[in-house]
């Protein structure tokens, strides 16, 4: 109940925010937390005179929820991950960018110019891409970590010291890789086995947390953490003796994208912002800060040279395939929801 009231207040606040934002020279951005450097936003304002208002979210799903609860028409752009772009497109939440509206569109690297989640880049531009796997504290364990067993069937040293992302999509996709079954499988036996495997694995987990996925590794509260590659690199730089794994069973690949939202109150400014992020120098600033990878040509000369050499960015020869999270059908999703509830009941 308390939460509902909070959402109501937030919705009201958004409604007022929208009115203010309709004035000239504004851009309302809905973005992941701890991702875009403030200096870059300042630079944008300096170059264009457009002031930026930013709200943040901590998961693709919570962004979708607040957009559905009245955020459409309030925000101009948001930054969904790959699978969420297709979901939002399916929900009719994205505006189409006409040919020629983005003058820097040609800077998009060929690999990312026509992705399956947004064919032809109708509504989105690449932002950052990377991987999700897990990091292990090498002071706590010095054995082989290139296996998903570390998360789902951990050695004694690591039992009870594992933090998982509090995100159904990432946990389920990793579990499917571990078991060697397809994501969103409709096979009942496979789904039952998945449910049983997670119940078993949970006994060894200490916590579910996404916001503090990095902090628990740095503080030593967790010895293993399911985590994004850039976050793992930051944990290492902050002093944790962690190694990022590329399991032989595979790992999750992802790409965040800047999308033009339907009914954007400042559509023109949104396009100016997207063009701004299509300049290699600007997107490189995000990459240098967040330590992921940009999807543009010509970024290399602006990147911190240390980035390319990072172990988190260089899968070893035996690493499994990087797979995108798939969008499940409604039937499978409802089974997934049950498995998730079972896991946390």
């Amino acid at each position: 109940m308390k939460h509902m009231m909070k959402s109501g207040v937030a919705a009201l606040a958004l409604a007022f925010g929208a009115n203010a934002a309709a004035a000239e020279g504004e851009l309302v951005l809905y973005h992941w937390f701890e991702y875009i450097p403030q200096e870059l936003l300042d630079k944008f304002t300096e170059e264009t005179g457009i002031t930026v208002t930013m709200d943040t979210y901590d998961s693709n799903e919570s962004m979708l929820a607040s957009l559905k609860a009245g955020g459409i028409g309030t925000y101009d752009v948001s930054v969904p991950g790959d699978y969420m772009v297709s979901i939002m497109a399916g929900e009719g939440m994205l505006d189409t960018i006409a040919d020629g509206e983005l003058k820097n569109k040609g800077n998009i690297a060929p690999d990312w110019a026509d992705p399956s989640f947004d064919p032809g880049r109708q509504s989105s531009i690449p932002y950052q891409w990377g991987s999700t796997s897990f990091a292990v504290n090498r002071d706590a364990y010095d054995g082989d970590i290139q296996t998903t067993d570390i998360l789902f069937n951990p050695p004694a040293e690591l039992q009870g010291r594992i933090n998982m992302l509090d995100s159904q999509g990432e946990v389920m996709a990793m579990a499917a890789l571990h078991m060697g079954i397809p994501q969103c499988s409709t096979d009942r036996e496979q789904l039952k086995a998945l449910n049983a495997m997670l119940q078993e694995a949970k006994q060894h987990w200490a916590s579910f947390n996404s916001d503090t996925a990095k902090e628990v590794l740095v503080s030593g509260d967790a010895a293993v953490g399911q985590i994004y590659d850039g976050f793992s690199a930051k944990a290492r730089e902050e002093g944790a003796n962690v190694e990022y794994a590329y399991p032989t069973q595979g790992y999750i690949a992802w790409m965040d994208n800047v999308v033009l939202l339907k009914d954007a109150p400042n559509r023109d400014n949104a396009l100016i912002f997207m063009d701004f992020l299509l300049e290699p120098e600007n997107i490189a600033a995000v990459t240098n800060f967040a330590q992921y990878n940009a999807g543009l040509n010509g970024v290399e000369s602006f990147l911190d040279p240390a980035l390319a050499a990072q172990p988190e960015k260089n899968p070893h020869a035996n690493a499994g395939p990087g797979v995108f999270i798939e969008v499940c059908s409604e039937e499978v999703q409802s089974v997934y929801d049950q498995i998730w509830t079972n896991l946390k009941k």
């Binding site: 109940m1 939460h3 799903e61 609860a69 159904q168 579910f208 929801d337 998730w340 509830t341 946390k344």
Partner: peptide, 19 residues
């Protein structure tokens, strides 16, 4: 550690989570 739902987090999941 969010390992077990409480009423509050169960409700939150229905709005902000995958469900």
């Amino acid at each position: 550690g969010a390992k077990n739902f409480m009423i509050g987090s169960l409700i939150e999941e229905q709005f902000k989570g995958n469900a």
